[in-house]
Every structure is written in C-alpha cells, then in structure tokens.
C-alpha cells in the first residue's frame, strides 16, 4: 500500500470515528441529562431487581408485555433514552394481578422468578384519608379491601369500612388503586419502592 493511500484511508477512518462517535455520544448525553438510575421512577413488574441493575439487565425484548394477561405492563416512552422501552405499571389504569407470568418469561434476569404472590414487593400502597370516602365520613365503601389479593393482611377494614394499610404485607400490586372510586384523585396511591425481595 502506498503511503498516500494509507494516510488517506486512516484519515477517513479517524474522521468517521470522530463523526459517528461524537454524534452518538452527544445524542446520548443530551438526551440523558437526568439519569435517575438510583431512584425508581415507576412501578416495575413483579420480581424486578433494583433500578440501576434493572436498566442494565433489561434487553428491551418486550416479552413481559407480551405475556401480561391484564395489560398492566406498559412501555416506558417518556423518561429519557436509558429507561426507554423498559416495562412499567400504572396501577390506576391496569393493576397487576400477580399472575407472575412476567417473572418466568424474562430471559435476562431483570425480573427474577418469585415463588409466591405474597413475596412480591414492587411498591407500597399509601392512603390519603382526606380523599377516602369511608375515612372522611361521606359514605361506606370498602372496595379496596375486596380487591386486595392479600386479603386481611395488606388491607384491613373496621366496622365503618375504613381501610387500614399494612406496609409489610402490601405487595404494591395496585388492585386497590385501580378500584378506588374516590372522586377526582384516587385516595390510594401505590408508591414504588427501591429495593425488592427483602
């Protein structure tokens, strides 16, 4: 190879590396201003490992979405490129029914299999007593207690159907949030927790 063509070829390669690499890095950095890797931004499906590892392990194959029979698992599209196309749950639209199909289908270990539905811990349901119909005295309700799959352990109600949440038994499935009939805002909101399984 002649010196001239060699120089030319290496120049082209260097220019291309700089162009493609620089472009991609700028793109990823500009779109990625606030990577909330340490903070869980949404409810993940059951069996999910902690958020930073989840984003690394999830290969965006969408198979958990495919197998979810209740349409609970949706695609993340708006939380920046790192979290894009990862699965999450909005319980007020479609709550998780704890069928655990997604934990068994995940190929890469972003969701690890869970044995019993009681072992799931994706969030904790918090109640706002000012909005709850039974608590603020405007009526009789108790549908959250009826909907709860961990009945009487995660939610208990008293003689006036006022629910009480028990954080240690709550799986965070969000069935109670989905059915909550409170006007305007839901009285129950499931808040994601950072670490799962303990």
């Amino acid at each position: 190879m002649e010196r001239r063509s060699f120089l030319r070829a290496s120049g082209e390669i260097a220019a291309s590396v700089v162009c493609i690499g620089g472009g991609l890095s700028l793109l990823s950095l500009s779109l990625n201003e606030a990577p909330q890797l340490d903070k869980r931004i949404a409810l993940r499906p059951p069996g999910s490992i902690n958020e930073a590892n989840f984003l690394e392990k999830c290969i965006r194959c969408h198979r958990c979405i495919d197998v979810c029979p209740s349409q609970a698992i949706q695609l993340q599209g708006h939380e920046g490129p790192v979290a894009a196309h990862t699965p999450f749950i909005i319980p007020s639209e479609h709550a998780c029914i704890l069928c655990l199909a997604c934990t068994n289908v995940c190929p890469s270990g972003a969701l690890v299999p869970v044995e019993k539905r009681e072992d799931v811990k994706i969030g904790i349901a918090k109640i706002d007593k000012r909005l709850c119909v039974a608590h603020n005295g405007s009526g009789v309700c108790g549908v959250c207690h009826t909907a709860c799959p961990i009945k009487n352990k995660a939610i208990s109600i008293d003689y006036r159907t006022r629910p009480t949440m028990h954080d240690d038994a709550c799986t965070g499935c969000g069935q109670c949030e989905e059915v909550c009939p409170a006007d305007g805002h839901k009285a129950i909101r499931v808040e994601p927790i950072e670490m799962v399984g303990a």
């Binding site: 493609i20 991609l24 990823s28 950095l29």
Partner: peptide
C-alpha cells in the same frame, strides 16, 4: 462506539 457508550452511559443504543 455503541458498545462503548453502553459501557459508559449504560444506554443500549
């Protein structure tokens, strides 16, 4: 470059 960005930023580009 894509794998390198994945290694550094954690983005499966």
């Amino acid at each position: 470059v894509g794998l390198f960005i994945g290694l550094i930023v954690g983005l499966p580009l």
